[in-house]
Amino acid sequence: MQRMIGKRAISSLISLFGLIVLVFFLSRLTGDPSALFLPVDASEEMRQNFRELHGLNDPVLVQFGHYLGDLVRGDFGDSLRKARPALDVVLEAFVWTLQLAVITMTLVTVAAIVVGSVAAFKVGTKFDRVASLLSLIGASAPDFWIAIVAIVLFSVNLGWVPTSGTGSVWHWILPIAVLFIRPFGLILQVVRGSMLTALGSPYVKTARAKGVKNRPIIFVHTLRNAMLPVITVIGDQAAALLNGAVVVETIFGFPGVGKLMIDSILQRDFNVILAAIMVTALAIFLMNLLIDLAYALLDPRIRT
């Protein structure tokens, strides 16, 4: 197990480096930040000064060299827009994103597994139909649409919760509710599908044929065997949330890392983009490691 973790750490570092290279050069292809930081009628001299100050006049490869050199010393560079360390900016935002992701995914996982497996057991019944249909409708509606309708309905008309922002427990309800809908629908479908497959597999049939009437036992065993694809999808959804929920953050004014990344690419704030990518990538690598560990725990044959 330790060897596996070590191997994964090394391969993750390789992936991370690949990611840095990719983002560094791709983002610099999107344009010159001086055009965005300075007003349109700023002179060429001001632009030149801006580029000089931020080392943007060097050849890209030299810039990359400088960047890696600083990075090795733990310096992620300064934000062009905010004139302070990029890592600080990112970590501030990431704390919010992490909380949002953990809370949402916990709720989603529990709800989807419970509802999904019950639906699979009662396949074809009203419960199954309604659960599938509702989750599907929810998962198919654009989230910005749901978010705005939710604000109009629950904040403006009913006055139950605040429209947006941070500050109290109540501020979290709408963003989490909106974020909940899509992964819930997706994971529920996969749980149901996977459970159906597992229920149709020989060992469950054998157990049923042998007259094991104890539903909980069947339930637990089936679930255990149905979990592998489910965990994969949960991982995928959690990764998406760790990368920030751009739309929800934008509408609810939630200071997460998703909005930060999109704003930074709009403003060509390269150091912030890179720092954000590295922080979220690290979080996702860690999570993938946990997922692989979970695979190994669920299915001893996979252990290597």
């Binding site: 990611l19 791709l26 920030g244 999109i262 983009i273």
Partner: peptide
């Protein structure tokens, strides 16, 4: 291994961000 690391790179690249960057280029 190579394939899985590649998947890791893509997966850890926020999809909307990747989309924005590529669509800007």
């Amino acid at each position: 291994e190579v394939i899985m690391r590649l998947a890791d790179v893509i997966m850890s690249f926020p999809s909307l961000l990747l989309a924005v960057i590529v669509l800007y280029i």
